[in-house]
């Protein structure tokens, strides 16, 4: 697992128009220099917001990738919750989920 590298890719994607263009044109090639694991790479390529969240990516980085993928806010929040249901608790970082799996939170 290389959470730092996964986070760094998303951080750079969020702020670099050239990387966005290259990622849209050829996502696998754009990911290549970041040295991600297969699980991490597949999560990005399939826009698996739930898994990226469980892997520990900071939500302040992840929410922009979700918007980049065309996922609206409430759907973004639900995909993270679904990710915890499917893959288990967040594995690293400080953006863990503290409410219960089926709790309804008012901000969604």
């Amino acid at each position: 697992m290389s959470l730092y590298q996964l986070s760094k890719f998303l951080f750079q994607l969020n702020r670099d128009e050239d990387l966005k263009t290259r990622f849209k044109a050829g996502p696998q090639a754009a990911l290549e220099p970041f040295g991600l694991t297969t699980e991490e790479r597949d999560a990005i390529l399939s826009h698996d917001i739930g898994l990226i969240y469980v892997l520990g990516v900071n939500g302040q980085i992840l929410m922009h990738f979700a918007a980049f993928c065309g996922i609206e806010w409430s759907d973004y929040l639900q995909r993270m919750r679904d990710g915890v249901k499917h893959y288990g608790p967040v594995r690293a970082g400080i953006y863990t989920m503290q409410s219960g799996l089926d709790d309804k939170v008012a901000g969604a």
């Binding site: 969240y53 939500g59 302040q60 929410m63 639900q78 993270m80 989920m97 939170v105």
Partner: peptide
């Protein structure tokens, strides 16, 4: 606050 997590809104 718990921004950008599933707890967003708490």
């Amino acid at each position: 606050h718990w921004p950008a997590t599933p707890d967003s809104g708490m």
